[in-house]
Design a protein around this nucleic acid. Structure first.
Lengths: 326, 326
DNA sequence: GTGGCATTATTGATAGAAGTAATAAAGTTA
DNA sequence: TAACTTTATTACTTCTATCAATAATGCCAC
């Protein structure tokens, strides 16, 4: 019995559909149907109740599914473990990041990582902040990238970056003139009485901004609230108002000229970014290396050949006379 | 990757030999070699160090071996579990029995069991008493059959049979005359001053016999000691002396006339047999049924069609429209 | 070292399993 | 019931595990 059959069965159980499972694994629906049929024949019992749709698992199927999933995960962990014993960096690495982490920047890190550690199956998902914490808690991601990170009993945070806030305005906005006149900054007082597109009030970033603005004695006119950077960016591009955002999150728009970014004079307002992970779990080699990479300077990395980067990233491959076909 | 590869690798690791592993699984040595090579290619690392003989596992190989063994056992347990969910009796059942349990009798039970529960892979190993306890403790057998059973913290015993001791003599021995004269018994006093082939003194059975003989005021002349029934039987057949054995252990020799068995008059000397198993572990369905079967009367069983025997042995196979090829 | 022996690797052929495309059957929805 | 979606079946192809035979390698005695 091939491993594949168990995987396919698990996919079917998760998708509650043969055809969706087939798509997920990139095989024909026929193949999946036969694989499950084969399993059932071996066990001499029905795992899936096809008499209704969407299909349901029989009690035995349910138990078998849970068991298979666990055991398959066990095999995966075992493989990663022996790879690490051999000094390799391999296995799955799931990262959950808030979308506004700065897509371009992340992409660059990911590419560097993949080049340096081709045996790692790295995936970065961009999700809502709450979901990042959820994924870490449920072990569906090993490390998470968040802003205003907070430790908890379960999770711990490693400081990562501090992104300075800038004043983001539409190119036609009066303040944008300063930029065209050679200035790349503005005093925070310039926001006074401006229409401000802001974050929604449940977000940590909004609370911090409110505190800072109060301290600075500046009271802008909040015209819209969104729970993510993308929407705020769009609103400013549409001329609804100005925004206070980390420049790194709107680099692309600034470069293409659809937005203008002005540094804030006299204040040091930063968005701290952090790397969170489960407190009581040792990070895999892959996660360790990813965290290391995140702390390196992208410009430095860009200069080097990615295969050489990240120290002895592939050390320990003494016995690599073995040729892999995959 | 097929399951088979993992099994073969584990066999190689256990046997410390490719060819022995091949023999064990009944496949060619080539096949095993390729299977392991395939595994190593997938993992891109050496699992086995072939540069010396007997072969050794690399550190990674050792870890992988342990992991595979555990996970494969997990799959086996999972399968048994879902079969039991479906009301079936299936899976592996390992029984360890002392050799003298009465081979013929056991064989009959085994045949009945296999007929009633064809999905169970039953194996009975006959080993030394100490090993029976060991196997239970190390989980390499689920139930054990021993004489003079003793409970312990870890193990618990179910009483099974009480085999009456008989006086076993050579056909040419004076006492054998009694049998030819229609008597099938002898007083225990007949053993007085006889040459007795006995068990070694560390065995529980010997200690009990000594106690009984002392109580009866009978003092035979111990000429030989053996730690098992077989050797004692041979010694008596060779005319070395007489023996006190449960008749059930020498049935075959009595039937063929190489030994004569005389019941003991006036005394009730029995060898108690018990079924031992781990105290804190629920018995598998298969083990439960086997224990049940052991408590049924063999003569009753012999009369019935074995497919019908043992109550609803195959109950719960409602959904058996599925056809197995194996 | 050098044979002789035992063990493992390699190779080419083959049988069987797993995959696919096409199509039939079954379930769902209007 | 008809139209649609999903799953099963079938015939065919591709790929893979296995085998027998043989080469290569390691071990041991001399």
């Amino acid at each position: 019995m091939s491993f594949r059959n168990f995987e396919l069965f698990c996919d079917v159980a998760e998708c509650r559909s043969f055809s969706k499972a087939a798509d997920r694994r990139g095989v024909s629906q026929s193949s999946v149907s036969q694989a499950v049929a084969h399993l059932e024949k071996q066990l001499k019992l029905e795992l899936i109740d096809r008499s209704h749709r969407p299909l349901a698992l029989t009690p035995a199927g349910q138990r078998y599914f849970e068991g298979c999933r666990e055991l398959l995960a066990g095999f995966e962990r075992l493989e990663t473990e022996v790879q690490e014993l051999a000094g390799r960096v391999a296995g799955k690495l799931r990262v959950a990041a808030i979308y506004s982490i700065g897509l371009l920047q992340m992409d660059s890190y990911v590419h560097h990582f993949e080049a340096a550690f081709p045996d790692v199956d790295l995936r970065v998902d961009y999700v809502h902040p709450e979901q990042v914490y959820d994924r870490i808690r449920t072990d569906s991601a090993e490390i998470g990238l968040v802003s205003f990170p907070e430790d908890s009993a379960e999770l711990t945070a490693i400081p990562w970056q501090e992104q300075p806030f800038s004043l983001i305005v539409h190119p036609d906005h009066p303040l944008a003139k300063r930029a065209s006149q050679g200035y790349d900054s503005a005093p925070i007082e310039a926001v006074q009485s401006e229409d401000l597109v802001n974050f929604t009030s449940e977000l940590k970033v909004r609370k911090q901004l409110d505190r800072w603005l109060r301290e600075a004695g500046v009271s802008p006119n909040v015209v819209h609230e969104f729970d993510n950077v993308e929407q705020i960016r769009r609103a400013v591009e549409d001329g609804v108002g100005v925004a206070l955002l980390p420049e790194a999150t709107v680099t692309r728009s600034v470069e293409t000229g659809t937005l203008v970014s002005l540094k804030l004079e006299n204040v040091k307002w930063y968005r701290p970014l952090g790397i969170i992970h489960k407190r009581n779990r040792r990070l895999s080699n892959a996660a360790d290396r990813f965290v290391e990479l995140l702390h390196e300077d992208l410009n430095t990395l860009r200069g080097t050949d990615s295969n050489e980067s990240s120290r002895e990233g592939r050390a320990g491959n003494r016995d690599q006379k073995l040729n892999a076909s995959t």
